[in-house]
Design a protein around this nucleic acid. Structure first.
Lengths: 332, 332
DNA sequence: ATGAAAGCGCTAACAC
DNA sequence: GTGTTAGCGCTTTCAT
């Protein structure tokens, strides 16, 4: 049963004529070892093809060199880019990414976090603010470095790097109003951050005395097909709509397709604004006006913050706002 | 320094009035424990908020319950979907996914695999056939379950689930020829599987006596902008081209944009065929004719194969072909 | 600068 | 069905 896992540190030690502890040092803290001995150890390592068992070192040192990350779904390019940025940053310091998906379900998220805790991850990176209060408390208690991304919670569990989803909504509202739109609607997914964007959007319109005329929702994940359906429903109930803010670009593209299929001129008869700036947003017809978010950057920053904390430093800011950018193309 | 990690199994054992080994059994093999004792243990676990340390159990059992996976990039939706399917499948059995990206660099891949080996992963899932022969040999030697995806190597390291990239190229060639196209070109990324598609494409054209008139390449990742540039170059050299097979949909969309910008009718003057069937392929104008691959399915299947092997079963087939599908829309 | 020894928290025989 | 006894392969004081 016991595969007697190939070469152990003891084998290397023997081959190099030193003690195991010295091998350990030669590998992990090279400068604490005499250059000669280090050379011998390195030679032995190479000769035997020794690969340290990180499973054992994790147990002994209580540092796993693993950081856990949770995304709602990887099928969203921007979450994927966030993970890429994160993994790249962590990789530099020898940390590995352990990834799970919550599918936008809060209970799942709590369970996944327990799993990560059991694996003794050194830190956690979450997409969106952590909602489960019991879990928030637990994480604070164990003092684990945690970064919440894609949002800016008023009181982060630990650290955060993101942008204000409400402010995105407000900004889009302002642009629409400035362009003279008056019969404004919202299409979005029934999911926390999307709803936050809607909230900011609604408030701003309300404040301007041009209240939202309608909102249509779909279950995540948002698809082009869903966008088409939502637009259809919207128009059926409000044929006089003159602007739609879509909670994400797929829905916006669907809305655009509906418009093309029904001969509605965009932006002549109806303006369409998306969110997230997918690569294809510039290739639609007309090119989609949308809001760009910095997915990869959030991942990189999250990685930096985690590593800083793991080195024992206190981050300059516990919460960093990477902002967003309104991208004017041709659908508004 | 030692945080004396909260509750240990011994604590639970004491609270439940049993031996640690019994706690271990109650958790891992519940039916090997008397219902009563199990209940007591469970109560103690709950009361103390015990979370087993998987780092220790990995060491003791030499099973980490983690599987490593490598993708060239996550920014490709289909790789991301493959990982989603894989993670979902593995999660059912309590396995965790550890993810790394190779950025299409073979040397990196070998390094990443060493890292995984050090972490004692129970299995490996790769995107594409593993190219480094030394690494292939090593993996075979340690008898680690390995699944190669997105390709069908003639002689897999261990198992494979994918499709024939060459056959994709050949099929597209046949469709183009059947549609009467004669001046045919290829646009693609300078990356292994893309080149395989080109090879199959070229051979089939050659065999039909209508050799490929030109090929243009870009460095991965492929972008819409790159597609536009490649198309521009292609047309400059071969203004009489009447069909282009693009190694992926982004390039195809770029080619479409070039055509729109220059008043070339598609498919009237030039046919465009993509690869991968991105969600937006149906939303372009004209809707893109392309080849659909089953990313999520490959992930699921890979997960199933891994789990079967981990249970000690031999897979029915070592190599499974999930095929692909030519999706006829309006650009051919 | 290096070695010896004592665990890290769990699992796996083997007894009872 | 449950307890006892050894480790798993490293890291880490503490000496030397």
């Amino acid at each position: 049963m016991k595969p007697r896992s190939s070469v152990r540190m003891a084998d290397v030690a023997q081959a190099a004529g030193v003690a195991p502890a010295t091998v350990s040092r030669a590998i992990n803290e090279p400068d604490k070892v005499a250059p000669e001995t280090r050379a011998q150890v390195e030679a032995a390592v190479r000769k035997l093809g020794y690969v340290p068992d990180r499973t054992a070192s994790s147990l002994a040192s209580s540092r796993s060199k693993i950081v856990g990350a949770i995304v709602p779904t990887l099928a969203n390019v921007w979450f994927a880019e966030t993970m890429e940025g994160l993994a790249a940053e962590l990789g530099k310091a020898g940390y590995q990414l352990m990834l799970s998906q919550s599918s936008y379900v809060a209970r799942t998220e709590a369970g996944l976090i327990d799993g990560f805790l059991g694996r003794r991850v050194d830190a956690l990176v979450l997409t969106g603010a952590l909602r489960d209060t019991a879990t928030r408390a637990k994480l604070r208690a164990v003092k684990l470095p945690v970064v919440e991304t894609w949002d800016l919670p008023a009181r982060p569990v630990d650290m955060a790097v993101g942008f204000s989803n409400q402010e995105v909504g407000a900004e889009v509202a302002r642009r629409l109003l400035k362009a003279g739109r008056r019969r404004i609607a919202f299409l979005g997914a029934d999911e926390h951050r999307s709803l936050m964007r809607r909230t900011g959007f609604e408030r701003e319109l309300q404040a301007a005395g041009r209240p939202l005329i309608a909102s249509e929702f779909t279950q995540p994940p948002s698809t082009i097909a869903a966008g088409r359906v939502l637009m259809e429903q919207l128009v059926a109930a409000h044929p006089d709509v003159d602007a739609v803010f879509c909670g994400n670009d797929f829905l916006a593209i669907g809305a655009l397709m509906w418009a093309r299929a029904h001969g509605w001129d965009v932006p002549g008869r109806v303006a369409v604004v998306g969110f997230s700036d997918l690569p294809v947003a510039e290739a639609t017809w007309p090119p989609l006006t949308t809001v760009k978010v910095r997915g990869a950057e959030m991942g990189r920053r999250a990685g930096e913050m985690v590593l800083a904390r793991l080195r024992g430093e206190e981050p300059a800011r516990k919460s960093v706002d990477v902002g967003f950018e309104f991208v004017e193309r041709s659908t508004l």
